[in-house]
Design a protein around this nucleic acid. Sequence first.
DNA 1: CGATGTTTTGAAAGACTTCAAGACAGGTGG
DNA 2: CCACCTGTCTTGAAGTCTTTCAAAACATCG
Lengths: 228, 228
Amino acid sequence: MQTANAALNSHAAPSAALLRGTPLARSAPEASALGSFRRLAKDEEVFVEGDRAAFFYKVQSGAVRTFKLLSDGRRQIDAFHLPGDIFGIEPGEEHRFSAEAVGDATVISYRRSNLNAETKDAGDIPNEMIPAVLLSLVRAQNHMLLLGRKNAVEKIASFLLDLSGRTANTDQIDLPMSRTDIADHLGLTIETVSRSLTQLERQGTIELPAHRRCIVLRNKPALERLDM
Amino acid sequence: MQTANAALNSHAAPSAALLRGTPLARSAPEASALGSFRRLAKDEEVFVEGDRAAFFYKVQSGAVRTFKLLSDGRRQIDAFHLPGDIFGIEPGEEHRFSAEAVGDATVISYRRSNLNAETKDAGDIPNEMIPAVLLSLVRAQNHMLLLGRKNAVEKIASFLLDLSGRTANTDQIDLPMSRTDIADHLGLTIETVSRSLTQLERQGTIELPAHRRCIVLRNKPALERLDM
DNA sequence: CGATGTTTTGAAAGACTTCAAGACAGGTGG
DNA sequence: CCACCTGTCTTGAAGTCTTTCAAAACATCG
């Protein structure tokens, strides 16, 4: 079970500017000064549910998925973390998720205990990390609505819009993750993801080029109507 | 749209002890010193999505539901808040949920701006409120697994165990909420909730007395096996 | 004891999943 | 440069679970 953290050799405190900005602003990747790099191969573990939460992380390149498993292997990916995103902050001593690289990725790890002790509060979460926690919460709350009350096509539409807003300036999305990952994020099966994408393509809302990891948004208003 | 907040006349700062304790500890209801009371009738609104988040709240008696709606009326109840629970804390200026009393209830409202200014951090969330935010996050994350990957009976089992852990010392649960509320919390329909309860009763895992708002847990280990 | 709102149950329909096969892209080696 | 291999993605058909529509049962309360 213990794996990932052993590979870390971080000993520096993170920059105070780590999480500056508006509550929901993502700090830019280049703003991360101190902390140790870690290069991850596709599907490599960063930490496993139950590990001691000695570090938290910021994605520098690639993408990371955090997820929980049921005993029979069913998986729920609570979030994909893109460059600039922070993940692995825990209220308690242990990680309550597992984290893996979606594709090849690099992350910066920060030793939790190295943060200024006096900035710590009752929750044992330093002030600088609170915006990241709040962002997680907002996303989790929106995602509950998606998981509980949207149908397959609506889930896909919301997902594409979210990803588009977080990554692309254009209407072209380069998916870092597989259909299986998308399915486990949206509470669907891989086949339903595929069929929903096909359906959106047939009605001209999106375009699915030959390269399967790419999706072009052809009719954003139509997607937005599905997202309300 | 604007409604609830107008009825408030709070002007006192909340106790510093408002949120003392371990990160996930719920502060006891009686620990809430300052802040103004508000008595709520069944289904009465506390605030509506989009309202200015001038206050946050602590439940003193009864229960409160917070929820989001899709444009066609589909509802996702993200959480039920029981005595001692805090709700309505927002990262931004607006409430991102609506809140209503499940049955008759009383809450204490705290004016957000009255908190010590110097304790505020980048996220505009005072330190004292962080444990409540963290608790919300943990619950939201667990709930995503439930919504995305559990079947109806498993959802009900998890829900009953959660409620049992939060309210009862006995194996008897007095539900504050209707089947409709449960359905909208678990991403099911009222009929499926009812059928799942019946199924659990038939296999002897729970008991459903004539008083429909009461459920007796007859076989907690069986429920826990469904919850893994 | 009847009126009302809630909950349960039944039957049919629908959405999504499962199982299975086929299509395709990208990489490897000839 | 092409054939083949491999992993991923798509599509089809059948099955399952949940929803929808409808009605009956039940508790609560005046």
